[in-house]
Design a protein around this nucleic acid. Sequence first.
RNA 1: GACCCCAUCGUCUAGUGGCCUAGGACAUCGGCCUUUCACGCCGAAAACACGGGUUCGAGUCCCGUUGGGGUCGCCA
Length: 467
Amino acid sequence: MHKNIRTRFAPSPTGYLHIGGARTALFNMLFARHFGGTFLLRIEDTDRKRSTIQAIQAIINGLEWLGLTPDEPTVFQSRNIQRHKEAAESLIQSGQAYFCYCTANELEEMRKTALARGESPRYDGRWRERDQSDAPKDVKPVIRFKSPQNGKTDIFDLVQGNVSVENRELDDMVLLRADGSPTYMLSVVVDDHDMKITHAIRGNDHLTNAFRQTQLFKALGWSPPHYAHIPLIHGPDGSKMSKRHGALGVEAYREMGYLPEAILNYLMRLGWSHGDDEIVSMKQAIEWFELHEVNKSASRFDFDKLNYLNAHYIKSMPDDCLISLIEKKTKVNLVTRDRLKKGLAGLKERAKTINEIVEKGEVYLCSRPIKIESEALSSLTQECLRKLQLIATDFQSLEEWSEDGVKSVIHNFIEHHKVKMRDIALPLRIALSGSTSSPGLFELSFALGKEEVLGRISDATGMSSRI
RNA sequence: GACCCCAUCGUCUAGUGGCCUAGGACAUCGGCCUUUCACGCCGAAAACACGGGUUCGAGUCCCGUUGGGGUCGCCA
């Protein structure tokens, strides 16, 4: 079972790569890599009307961003349609499929009556044994699978365990539409077989599909892959994930300033764990991942934990990488880049997202005169301004501009003028950052540089005295 | 509604019959650190859905109840 493992992520390109899909892809990759197998991507685009190239691109980009790139060229299901049709034909030949001439109205009625009788809405099999000569001329038939009526179908799911259903519960599904195109149910089976997929790892919403697919595999004389239905991700309130809950495309997470490492780490811990380990790299995950250790129950999406992980990976990211990410989100020039670099250590400590770094890093990136928050401005008393002017002259005479140098200037100031740290820290912070909350004063001053510090102090004293 | 699946702190989870007076993490609350905001450190509160069995012994096995989810398309 561990030889030549082949897994696939098989999304339909009707929208972005959402967070649940990303996790499915992750688990497929983790499992394949763990056994030195192959991870594939198959775009399920048999429904041409709903598939878009934008969606295909979004899925491929999303996977690439997360580092979940397939090991072989992407398979487009629509290119295998001929094969799917042949499979349907062969089932007709072997008497395991038949033409059905029901109209949409007839089907609608069948569902209603079944529902009324307290049964599942389903096709009643009326064309199963009916003679072809009865076929109405004006109706194009679909091909339906003649599914077994007796016995039951078992699947041994690697995550969910042994699951079985009575065959009579399953109606005859459509294999080929009236227009001759194959349905998902047929395509998946044929492609999984042709691609030599050994393990179908997908969302739990496919669990009941596995029964029908297993029947189809058998009818075609093939053996089904091992199935693993991983639990779904729900919204924070336990209901189905909505956009509000984080059911966004992965590119939305990138825009919000999340790191792929954080998302991957967060996603892998949803339903899977390795003892008490919380911070897990892809390398470790590949080494440790086992399908039978995946939980059966759905989990809820939690932004707090994602934020925590993201903050962790931001802290451990090299400065150069961080700066280039910041540069993608905001304008940085030669001068501000230098300031940013000097102040980055303090910024990293605080931020939960890249966007937060950009926001907080604005103190280094903005140019004079800086904007001062009104609340901060109102705490700048005349006394504050006087102190600012005084300390400006002290800064002026500081020759070697270093963090320690700035520190000693401030400490000396406190001693000479017999004031508390707060008394000078607050006005200085406001003058330099325009806010009552900023990075540490010493590093802020140092990173800004002497000229900028003196400039901002002078701006503040000038501006305030005019009010 | 029918069928299928699931059920440990608010959340993610550890736990595979005795090591569990249930462990870790996020969030919450308190303290320390501190020039602000954070970070960090220390501490607290917080769970085996319920009811029956099986067993010397059950969070762990079985059954039922309740609750939640999924599926029931000529969508995937």
